[in-house]
Amino acid sequence: MTQSVELTLDDETDRAVREQWAALAEAGLPTEQRVLPSPSHRPHITLYAGPTLDSEADERLPGLFAGLRLRFRIGAVLLFGPRRGQVVLVRQVVVGRELLALQEAVATLCGASPEGQFGPGRWTPHVTLARRVPTGQVGAVLTALGEVPELDAVSRDGRRWDSDRRETWSL
């Protein structure tokens, strides 16, 4: 399945993204909001994802996040796709040097393929709002969201997600 390393968001930014999830759900549109809340499901920025992660990388990852206080901006709404008549709706994460350096260090430690989506110059940082949005619903999705202000965010923590065990833990 999937092993990933993610940046979590400060409480205010987390709440703002969840409000956007809720607006989509209330409109009956695709959303990342879950019907049954899950403590492991929350807004995040994926720094690396792959089928496996070796134990040495797992042991060294917390050192990359020690003392983290990373500021960044969550910007415009973007669409990934279309693919098979659907798009993924995301919020852009505006990249700064610190964020790029952290992602590169994580991807290198985790053994990301240079040609893959987490390789140097290939990563597109974002926060997902909805997956599998039919292209015919893009207008309705944008209407449901209304104005989407930029968000000044801070991350003080990373987490690991192990989809095999369905567990997350703080780094």
Score class of each variant (00 low, 15 high):
L36V: 15
F65G: 02
D164L: 15
D11L: 10
S170V: 15
E32T: 07
V148L: 01
V148K: 01
L99I: 06
R18M: 02
E56L: 13
L7T: 01
V106S: 02
A57S: 12
S113P: 11
G111L: 02
A22W: 13
E26D: 12
R42M: 11
S4A: 11
G67S: 05
R122D: 01
W123H: 08
E6P: 05
V5M: 06
E56N: 11
A27F: 04
T124P: 00
P62F: 07
E32Y: 04
P134V: 00
L142D: 08
S113E: 14
G121C: 01
L36D: 15
V106G: 01
S113C: 13
T52S: 10
V133Y: 07
A153T: 04
S4L: 04
E19T: 11
L70I: 06
T108Q: 14
G116V: 10
Q3A: 11
G116I: 11
D157F: 14
L47C: 04
P114R: 06
S40A: 15
A130G: 05
T108I: 06
V141R: 00
V154T: 14
S55M: 13
S4M: 07
V127G: 01
P82Q: 05
L36N: 14
T52L: 08
I45N: 01
F65K: 01
D157C: 12
R91M: 06
S155T: 15
L151K: 02
G136T: 14
H126F: 12
T135N: 06
T46I: 06
H126V: 11
D157T: 15
A144M: 02
V138I: 15
G96Y: 06
R131A: 04
G119S: 08
T124F: 14
P125L: 09
V87M: 04
S155Q: 08
L89Q: 01
P30T: 00
G85Q: 09
R132F: 13
A112P: 10
V141L: 05
D152T: 13
A105Q: 12
D10G: 07
D152R: 12
R34M: 11
M1T: 10
R131N: 11
R15A: 15
Q92W: 03
L151V: 09
E150K: 09
V88W: 08
Q137E: 10
T143A: 14
E32N: 07
L29V: 07
R160P: 06
G121F: 02
V5C: 05
P43E: 09
R131K: 13
V88K: 03
G85E: 09
A16N: 02
R83K: 12
L89R: 01
W21E: 05
V94W: 07
V94T: 09
R156M: 13
R159D: 12
W161P: 03
V77N: 00
P134L: 08
A57D: 01
Q137G: 03
D10R: 03
R15Y: 11
I45D: 02
A66V: 13
P134R: 07
F80D: 04
L9P: 00
V77A: 03
A105N: 04
A140H: 09
D157S: 15
V106L: 00
R159C: 12
P134H: 05
A76P: 07
